[in-house]
Amino acid sequence: MAELEGIYTIWLRETKRYIRYRSRIITSVVSPMLWLIIFGTGLGAAIRFGDIEGGYQIFIYPGIIGQTILFTSIFSGVSVIIDRQYGFLKEILVAPLSRPSIVLGKSLGISTHALIQGVILLILSFVVGVSMTPMIFLASVFIIVLISSGLAGVGLTIASFTDSMEGFNLIMSFIVLPMFLLSGALFPITGLPTWLQAAVYVNPLTYGVDALRYIILGEAVLPLGINILVLIIFAIITISVSAILFSKKEQSLM
């Protein structure tokens, strides 16, 4: 019970922080819209794309939702580093609360951020002309929570190894961008050269984007069940790893 309340308290703080920094919400909605409207329209006009009605712009819509979740989740996870620099992490770590509960509270908070952004993008689906039904909406929300849980674990794991935001560019170049580009957000993952195909299938975000694409556009490479299974396993692994790291490294985190 005390642990549950601890988890809730940490979630509440994360959420308050997120909502109060309004500029972050705005930028995180504007940049995916730029991708959709400019990049989607631009490239869509230049190429003949597949058999989806509406073409390229509609094809990348689920991918751009995936991208937004990716950026938000990793960034929020890594923001633990900022907490650490401000000394606030200490206040949480010395509380009589287990490390897994702290990690769980954090990752729920992060999923909430991702969810808020995902919902905004789902509501904006009319901009690119995707039809949205309550069923599609709810199923998408479920997938978004799954993806962001796993990615939150990645962010928290990175944070437990890094002690300053200076490493943030490294994280962007070596983790976030490759994950985005290799997720099939911008191109179909069938018919790729073998090396690229392998890299795409190693990337957990691929399964998230594929699942969203199935739910929203009714098109997918893999069965939905497999995608969901991979996402669940991914989330369990990364959150467990970060929980273990927080327990093991608690001394160096304070």
Binding site: R13, K16, F88
Partner: peptide
């Protein structure tokens, strides 16, 4: 514990800090 370095969150209010602490310490 009161640490040597500050351990407060700029974006929360004083009361929220106290509420949060009360919850964390059961």
């Amino acid at each position: 514990i009161v640490f040597q370095s500050r351990a407060l969150d700029d974006i929360l209010t004083g009361r929220e800090h106290l509420e949060m602490h009360a919850a964390l310490y059961g």
